[in-house]
Amino acid sequence: MKEVTVEDLKRMKENGEDFQLIDVREDFEYQMSNLEGDNIPLSGVVIEADKISKDKPVVIMCRSGKRSAMAVMQLEQQGYENLYNLKGGILAWQQEIDPNISVY
């Protein structure tokens, strides 16, 4: 499984790179804090796969990196080859990039 670090994601955002960010946390988690990605909870990621790009890099994130890793595995079984798991999830983002972001 391919991964990106929070530093990689920050650089991608700052450079205006063309990628899609998918947050697979539940809606209430996304409402608490997010990195402005599309919210598709893990339970619906295969059902809503048509919302996930196949022609540009897609970074998938969650709270710690576990649910997003499951999402990557599920989507790779559907033929996706452009997926990256955000290592450490939003917890790593809080620790390394933005200590003011709300996480639980």
Score class of each variant (00 low, 15 high):
I60L: 15
A69N: 13
K51V: 06
L86A: 06
A71R: 06
Q74I: 02
S68P: 11
P41E: 01
M73L: 09
G88T: 01
E36W: 09
I60Y: 11
E76C: 10
I47F: 02
S68C: 15
E76Y: 05
V58P: 08
F19T: 01
E96R: 15
E48R: 14
K56Y: 02
V59D: 13
N82F: 03
Q94E: 06
A92W: 09
Y84G: 10
F19W: 00
P57C: 07
A92E: 12
E29I: 02
V4K: 06
S64K: 10
K66A: 14
M32Y: 11
G65N: 10
Q77K: 13
E29C: 09
I40C: 15
I40V: 13
E96Q: 14
R63I: 04
W93S: 10
D50L: 03
G79W: 03
Q31K: 13
D98R: 01
R67D: 09
D18I: 06
D18N: 12
L91P: 12
N100S: 13
K56N: 06
Q95R: 14
I40M: 07
N82C: 07
I52F: 05
V6R: 02
I22N: 10
N15F: 04
E48S: 15
Y84I: 04
V45I: 15
D8K: 00
P41W: 01
K87H: 10
K51M: 10
I40S: 14
G65M: 08
N34V: 00
S64M: 14
K2F: 02
M73P: 05
G89Q: 04
F19K: 00
S64Q: 12
Q78F: 12
E48A: 13
N15H: 05
Q20T: 02
L21H: 04
G37A: 04
D8F: 00
V6T: 05
L42P: 05
M70E: 12
N82R: 01
Q20L: 07
K13Y: 03
S33I: 03
V46S: 00
I97C: 10
T5S: 12
Q74V: 03
D50E: 12
D18R: 06
E17R: 04
D38E: 15
R25S: 05
G44E: 09
G44R: 04
N34T: 00
G37W: 00
S53T: 00
Y84K: 03
I47K: 01
R63A: 13
E29A: 07
I40W: 05
M61H: 15
L91M: 14
E36R: 11
E17L: 08
Q20I: 04
